Computed example of a mutant assay.
Amino acid sequence: MLRLTTIGFDADDTLWQNEQFFRMTEDRFVALLGEHGEATEISGRLLEAERRNLGFYGFGIKGFVLSMIETAIEVTKGQVPASVIGEILAAGREMAAHPVQTLPHVRETLEALSDDYRLVLITKGDLFDQERKLAQSGLGDFFHAVEIVSDKKATTYDRIFSRHGDGAGRAMMVGNSLKSDILPALEAGCWAVHVPHHLTWVLEHADEPVGHGRYHAIPDLGPLRGLVQRLVR
Rank of each mutant, 00 (worst) to 15 (best):
His144Gly: 01
Leu54Met: 11
Pro196Asp: 08
Thr155Gln: 13
Arg52Met: 08
Thr6Pro: 06
Gly222Ala: 09
Leu178His: 00
Ala154Val: 05
Cys190Asn: 01
Glu74Phe: 15
Gly125Met: 07
Pro81Gln: 05
Ala96Leu: 12
Glu131Thr: 07
Ile182Arg: 04
Pro184Asp: 11
His164Glu: 10
Ala96Glu: 12
Gln17Glu: 13
Ser150Ala: 14
Thr14Asn: 10
His197Ile: 01
Gly86Gln: 10
Glu208Pro: 11
Ala188His: 03
Leu113Asp: 03
Glu108Pro: 10
Gly58Thr: 11
Phe64His: 07
Gln101Cys: 09
Glu208Ser: 13
Glu108Leu: 08
Val120Ala: 02
Phe56His: 15
Met173Leu: 07
Val193Tyr: 00
Phe59Gln: 11
Leu186Cys: 04
Val75Cys: 12
Asp151Lys: 06
Leu121Pro: 01
Ala82Cys: 09
Leu47Tyr: 10
Gly165Cys: 04
Phe59Pro: 05
Lys152Gln: 15
Ala154Trp: 09
Val30Tyr: 06
Pro104Tyr: 08
Leu231Gly: 02
Gly37Arg: 05
Ala97Asn: 14
Thr25Trp: 01
Phe142Lys: 02
Asn176Lys: 00
Arg23Thr: 11
Glu70Lys: 13
Leu127Lys: 11
Ile160Tyr: 07
Ile61Trp: 14
Tyr215Asp: 00
Ile73Thr: 15
Glu70Asn: 10
Val120Cys: 05
His105Pro: 08
Ile218Asn: 00
Ala171Tyr: 00
Ala154Asp: 09
Ala72Ser: 08
Asp129Pro: 02
Val84Thr: 12
Ala112Thr: 09
Glu108Arg: 15
Val100Trp: 08
Asn176Gln: 01
Ala192Arg: 04
Phe128Asp: 15
Gly78Val: 02
Thr25Ser: 03
Glu48Thr: 05
Gln20Pro: 03
Phe161Asp: 08
Leu47Lys: 13
Leu66Cys: 09
Val174Glu: 02
Asp116Ile: 05
Glu50Lys: 10
Ala206Arg: 12
Gly169Phe: 11
Glu208Asn: 13
Arg230Gln: 13
Phe143Met: 02
Val149Gly: 01
Gln17Lys: 15
Leu4Lys: 08
Lys77Trp: 12
Arg230Pro: 02
Gly78Arg: 09
Glu108Ser: 15
Leu227Glu: 04
Arg23His: 12
Glu74Val: 04
Ser162Arg: 15
Gly167Ser: 05
Arg28Asp: 06
Ala217Phe: 14
Glu147His: 07
Ala82Leu: 12
Gly125Pro: 09
Pro81Tyr: 07
Gly169Ile: 09
Thr109Tyr: 10
His198Trp: 06
Tyr215Lys: 05
His98Arg: 15
Gly189Val: 03
Gly211Leu: 06
Glu41Ser: 09
Arg230Ala: 06
Asp141His: 15
Leu89Pro: 04
Arg170Glu: 04
Glu94Asp: 11
Ala91Tyr: 05
Ala135Asn: 13
Leu203Lys: 01
Asp158Leu: 11
Arg233Lys: 12
Leu54Ile: 13
Thr155Met: 14
